[in-house]
Design a protein around this nucleic acid. Structure first.
Lengths: 109, 109
DNA sequence: TTGATAGGCAAGCCGCTACTTGCATATCGT
DNA sequence: ACGATATGCAAGTAGCGGCTTGCCTATCAA
Protein backbone atom coordinates (compact mmCIF):
# COMPACT_ATOMS: atom_id res chain seq x y z
CA UNK A 1 0.00 0.00 0.00
CA UNK A 2 1.05 3.57 -0.53
CA UNK A 3 3.01 2.72 -3.62
CA UNK A 4 3.62 5.43 -6.15
CA UNK A 5 0.38 6.52 -7.79
CA UNK A 6 2.21 7.95 -10.79
CA UNK A 7 3.79 4.60 -11.52
CA UNK A 8 0.41 2.92 -11.27
CA UNK A 9 -0.97 5.35 -13.84
CA UNK A 10 1.97 4.93 -16.19
CA UNK A 11 0.40 1.86 -17.76
CA UNK A 12 -2.38 2.37 -20.27
CA UNK A 13 -4.16 -0.88 -19.40
CA UNK A 14 -4.32 0.14 -15.76
CA UNK A 15 -5.77 3.51 -16.69
CA UNK A 16 -8.40 1.74 -18.76
CA UNK A 17 -9.25 -0.49 -15.83
CA UNK A 18 -9.75 2.59 -13.67
CA UNK A 19 -11.86 4.19 -16.40
CA UNK A 20 -13.98 1.08 -16.51
CA UNK A 21 -14.44 1.07 -12.74
CA UNK A 22 -15.28 4.76 -12.83
CA UNK A 23 -18.16 4.02 -15.17
CA UNK A 24 -19.42 0.89 -13.53
CA UNK A 25 -18.00 0.40 -10.09
CA UNK A 26 -17.81 -2.91 -8.33
CA UNK A 27 -16.92 -5.38 -11.02
CA UNK A 28 -15.43 -8.83 -10.83
CA UNK A 29 -12.18 -9.76 -12.52
CA UNK A 30 -13.85 -11.78 -15.26
CA UNK A 31 -16.10 -8.86 -16.13
CA UNK A 32 -13.17 -6.45 -16.33
CA UNK A 33 -11.31 -8.94 -18.53
CA UNK A 34 -14.23 -9.40 -20.90
CA UNK A 35 -14.75 -5.68 -21.12
CA UNK A 36 -11.12 -4.94 -21.97
CA UNK A 37 -11.21 -7.62 -24.66
CA UNK A 38 -14.34 -6.39 -26.37
CA UNK A 39 -13.82 -2.67 -26.04
CA UNK A 40 -10.11 -2.41 -26.62
CA UNK A 41 -9.40 -5.67 -28.38
CA UNK A 42 -6.80 -6.59 -25.79
CA UNK A 43 -5.68 -10.18 -25.66
CA UNK A 44 -4.37 -10.52 -22.16
CA UNK A 45 -4.56 -13.48 -19.85
CA UNK A 46 -6.70 -13.29 -16.76
CA UNK A 47 -3.52 -13.26 -14.67
CA UNK A 48 -2.17 -10.23 -16.47
CA UNK A 49 -5.26 -8.24 -15.53
CA UNK A 50 -5.16 -9.69 -12.04
CA UNK A 51 -1.60 -8.45 -11.61
CA UNK A 52 -2.54 -5.02 -12.90
CA UNK A 53 -5.30 -4.95 -10.30
CA UNK A 54 -2.76 -5.91 -7.65
CA UNK A 55 -0.65 -2.90 -8.64
CA UNK A 56 -3.69 -0.66 -8.42
CA UNK A 57 -4.44 -2.13 -5.00
CA UNK A 58 -0.87 -1.43 -3.90
CA UNK A 59 -1.34 2.16 -4.95
CA UNK A 60 -4.58 2.34 -2.99
CA UNK A 61 -6.59 3.05 -6.10
CA UNK A 62 -8.74 -0.03 -5.76
CA UNK A 63 -10.16 -2.16 -3.00
CA UNK A 64 -11.42 -5.72 -3.11
CA UNK A 65 -14.56 -7.10 -1.55
CA UNK A 66 -15.20 -10.82 -1.38
CA UNK A 67 -18.59 -11.81 -2.72
CA UNK A 68 -19.03 -15.54 -2.83
CA UNK A 69 -16.52 -16.96 -5.24
CA UNK A 70 -16.12 -13.62 -6.88
CA UNK A 71 -13.81 -10.79 -5.91
CA UNK A 72 -15.42 -7.47 -6.57
CA UNK A 73 -13.09 -4.58 -7.29
CA UNK A 74 -14.14 -1.08 -6.34
CA UNK A 75 -12.61 2.24 -7.29
CA UNK A 76 -10.93 4.34 -4.64
CA UNK A 77 -10.01 7.60 -6.31
CA UNK A 78 -8.53 9.39 -3.31
CA UNK A 79 -4.88 8.78 -4.23
CA UNK A 80 -5.56 10.60 -7.49
CA UNK A 81 -5.74 13.81 -5.53
CA UNK A 82 -1.97 13.54 -5.21
CA UNK A 83 -1.70 13.78 -8.97
CA UNK A 84 -4.20 16.59 -8.98
CA UNK A 85 -2.21 18.46 -6.36
CA UNK A 86 1.05 17.92 -8.17
CA UNK A 87 -0.57 19.27 -11.31
CA UNK A 88 -1.84 22.35 -9.55
CA UNK A 89 1.18 24.69 -9.99
CA UNK A 90 1.25 23.88 -13.70
CA UNK A 91 -2.34 24.80 -14.36
CA UNK A 92 -1.48 28.49 -14.27
CA UNK A 93 0.82 27.94 -17.24
CA UNK A 94 -1.82 26.81 -19.67
CA UNK A 95 -4.42 29.13 -18.29
CA UNK A 96 -1.96 31.98 -18.84
CA UNK A 97 -1.69 31.15 -22.52
CA UNK A 98 -5.45 30.93 -22.78
CA UNK A 99 -5.68 34.30 -21.09
CA UNK A 100 -3.14 35.70 -23.54
CA UNK A 101 -5.11 34.25 -26.42
CA UNK A 102 -8.34 35.74 -25.13
CA UNK A 103 -6.72 39.12 -24.71
CA UNK A 104 -5.28 38.94 -28.18
CA UNK A 105 -8.68 38.12 -29.64
CA UNK A 106 -10.30 40.94 -27.73
CA UNK A 107 -7.71 43.43 -28.97
CA UNK A 108 -7.94 42.11 -32.52
CA UNK A 109 -11.55 41.28 -33.16
CA UNK B 1 8.14 13.22 -29.71
CA UNK B 2 4.64 12.53 -28.51
CA UNK B 3 5.74 9.79 -26.19
CA UNK B 4 3.50 8.88 -23.30
CA UNK B 5 3.26 11.73 -20.82
CA UNK B 6 2.17 9.40 -18.04
CA UNK B 7 5.32 7.33 -18.44
CA UNK B 8 7.41 10.49 -18.36
CA UNK B 9 5.79 11.46 -15.08
CA UNK B 10 6.22 8.02 -13.56
CA UNK B 11 9.74 8.86 -12.43
CA UNK B 12 10.16 10.99 -9.34
CA UNK B 13 13.39 12.58 -10.53
CA UNK B 14 11.73 13.72 -13.73
CA UNK B 15 8.87 15.25 -11.74
CA UNK B 16 11.39 17.09 -9.61
CA UNK B 17 13.11 18.41 -12.72
CA UNK B 18 9.78 19.71 -13.96
CA UNK B 19 9.08 21.26 -10.57
CA UNK B 20 12.44 22.97 -10.70
CA UNK B 21 11.77 24.32 -14.18
CA UNK B 22 8.35 25.48 -13.08
CA UNK B 23 9.95 27.61 -10.39
CA UNK B 24 12.85 28.93 -12.40
CA UNK B 25 12.43 28.34 -16.07
CA UNK B 26 15.28 28.24 -18.54
CA UNK B 27 18.04 26.48 -16.70
CA UNK B 28 21.13 24.72 -17.96
CA UNK B 29 21.84 21.07 -17.25
CA UNK B 30 24.59 21.82 -14.76
CA UNK B 31 22.27 24.07 -12.78
CA UNK B 32 19.55 21.44 -12.70
CA UNK B 33 22.08 18.85 -11.57
CA UNK B 34 23.44 21.03 -8.80
CA UNK B 35 19.96 21.87 -7.63
CA UNK B 36 18.86 18.24 -7.46
CA UNK B 37 21.97 17.37 -5.49
CA UNK B 38 21.64 20.12 -2.92
CA UNK B 39 17.88 20.10 -2.48
CA UNK B 40 17.18 16.38 -2.69
CA UNK B 41 20.57 14.91 -1.93
CA UNK B 42 20.56 12.94 -5.13
CA UNK B 43 23.81 11.44 -6.30
CA UNK B 44 23.28 11.04 -9.99
CA UNK B 45 25.73 11.50 -12.79
CA UNK B 46 25.26 14.38 -15.18
CA UNK B 47 24.37 11.88 -17.89
CA UNK B 48 21.57 10.41 -15.84
CA UNK B 49 19.92 13.81 -15.60
CA UNK B 50 20.64 14.45 -19.26
CA UNK B 51 18.83 11.24 -20.17
CA UNK B 52 15.89 12.17 -17.99
CA UNK B 53 15.73 15.48 -19.83
CA UNK B 54 15.77 13.58 -23.11
CA UNK B 55 12.74 11.59 -21.96
CA UNK B 56 10.98 14.81 -21.01
CA UNK B 57 11.84 16.19 -24.42
CA UNK B 58 10.40 13.09 -26.08
CA UNK B 59 7.22 13.66 -24.16
CA UNK B 60 7.15 17.27 -25.31
CA UNK B 61 7.37 18.53 -21.74
CA UNK B 62 10.60 20.39 -22.28
CA UNK B 63 12.35 22.22 -25.09
CA UNK B 64 16.02 23.06 -25.48
CA UNK B 65 17.53 26.33 -26.58
CA UNK B 66 21.19 26.63 -27.40
CA UNK B 67 22.92 29.45 -25.58
CA UNK B 68 26.61 29.47 -26.19
CA UNK B 69 28.09 26.32 -24.75
CA UNK B 70 25.08 25.86 -22.57
CA UNK B 71 21.83 24.16 -23.39
CA UNK B 72 18.99 25.88 -21.69
CA UNK B 73 15.96 23.77 -20.90
CA UNK B 74 12.53 25.36 -20.81
CA UNK B 75 9.29 23.98 -19.50
CA UNK B 76 6.49 23.19 -21.90
CA UNK B 77 3.49 22.23 -19.81
CA UNK B 78 0.97 21.67 -22.61
CA UNK B 79 1.19 17.86 -22.58
CA UNK B 80 0.18 17.96 -18.93
CA UNK B 81 -3.29 18.93 -20.06
CA UNK B 82 -3.69 15.32 -21.17
CA UNK B 83 -3.20 14.21 -17.58
CA UNK B 84 -5.53 16.94 -16.44
CA UNK B 85 -8.18 15.83 -18.90
CA UNK B 86 -7.82 12.19 -17.95
CA UNK B 87 -8.22 13.19 -14.33
CA UNK B 88 -11.36 15.17 -15.06
CA UNK B 89 -14.00 12.42 -14.66
CA UNK B 90 -12.47 11.43 -11.33
CA UNK B 91 -12.62 14.87 -9.84
CA UNK B 92 -16.33 14.54 -9.24
CA UNK B 93 -15.58 11.73 -6.83
CA UNK B 94 -13.64 13.81 -4.38
CA UNK B 95 -15.51 17.03 -5.08
CA UNK B 96 -18.79 15.36 -4.16
CA UNK B 97 -18.14 16.08 -0.51
CA UNK B 98 -17.35 19.72 -1.20
CA UNK B 99 -20.48 20.04 -3.31
CA UNK B 100 -22.53 18.56 -0.54
CA UNK B 101 -20.98 21.01 1.89
CA UNK B 102 -21.67 23.97 -0.40
CA UNK B 103 -25.24 22.94 -0.91
CA UNK B 104 -25.69 22.55 2.80
CA UNK B 105 -24.30 26.03 3.39
CA UNK B 106 -26.52 27.55 0.73
CA UNK B 107 -29.61 25.95 2.15
CA UNK B 108 -28.60 26.93 5.67
CA UNK B 109 -27.09 30.39 5.46
C1' DT C 1 -18.88 -35.60 -2.98
C1' DT C 2 -17.70 -34.25 -7.47
C1' DG C 3 -17.18 -31.12 -10.88
C1' DA C 4 -17.18 -26.51 -12.51
C1' DT C 5 -16.35 -21.72 -11.68
C1' DA C 6 -13.45 -17.77 -9.99
C1' DG C 7 -9.16 -16.26 -8.90
C1' DG C 8 -4.65 -16.02 -6.19
C1' DC C 9 0.40 -17.56 -5.98
C1' DA C 10 4.88 -18.71 -7.89
C1' DA C 11 8.33 -19.18 -11.24
C1' DG C 12 10.29 -17.99 -15.53
C1' DC C 13 11.02 -15.08 -19.83
C1' DC C 14 12.16 -11.02 -22.13
C1' DG C 15 12.29 -6.38 -23.15
C1' DC C 16 12.66 -1.92 -21.33
C1' DT C 17 14.67 1.52 -18.23
C1' DA C 18 17.62 3.87 -15.14
C1' DC C 19 22.26 4.40 -14.47
C1' DT C 20 27.32 4.33 -15.32
C1' DT C 21 31.60 4.85 -17.95
C1' DG C 22 34.14 6.35 -21.81
C1' DC C 23 34.58 9.07 -25.83
C1' DA C 24 33.40 12.80 -29.02
C1' DT C 25 31.99 17.64 -29.97
C1' DA C 26 31.39 22.43 -29.58
C1' DT C 27 32.12 26.90 -27.37
C1' DC C 28 34.39 30.29 -24.44
C1' DG C 29 38.52 32.48 -22.31
C1' DT C 30 43.41 33.30 -22.53
C1' DA D 1 45.76 27.54 -30.87
C1' DC D 2 44.97 25.44 -26.26
C1' DG D 3 42.84 24.24 -22.24
C1' DA D 4 38.67 24.26 -19.71
C1' DT D 5 33.79 24.09 -19.68
C1' DA D 6 29.34 22.14 -21.03
C1' DT D 7 27.09 18.63 -23.06
C1' DG D 8 25.67 14.86 -26.27
C1' DC D 9 26.31 10.04 -28.00
C1' DA D 10 27.26 5.09 -27.47
C1' DA D 11 27.80 0.89 -25.24
C1' DG D 12 27.29 -1.94 -21.29
C1' DT D 13 24.96 -3.55 -16.95
C1' DA D 14 21.68 -4.58 -13.39
C1' DG D 15 17.15 -4.68 -12.15
C1' DC D 16 12.39 -4.04 -12.70
C1' DG D 17 7.86 -4.69 -15.11
C1' DG D 18 4.52 -6.86 -17.95
C1' DC D 19 3.20 -11.20 -19.54
C1' DT D 20 2.66 -16.26 -19.68
C1' DT D 21 2.19 -20.95 -17.84
C1' DG D 22 1.27 -24.17 -14.32
C1' DC D 23 -0.47 -25.23 -9.98
C1' DC D 24 -3.23 -24.50 -5.84
C1' DT D 25 -7.39 -22.83 -3.11
C1' DA D 26 -12.10 -21.71 -2.26
C1' DT D 27 -16.94 -21.48 -3.32
C1' DC D 28 -21.23 -22.87 -5.59
C1' DA D 29 -24.29 -26.29 -7.92
C1' DA D 30 -25.83 -30.91 -8.96
Amino acid sequence: MGEDVFKALADLTRRRILDELAERDGRALAEICAWLMTKHGLRLSRQAISQHLAVLREAGLVVVRMDGKQRVYALRPEPLTKVDQWLEPYRMFWSKRLDALEQHLEENP
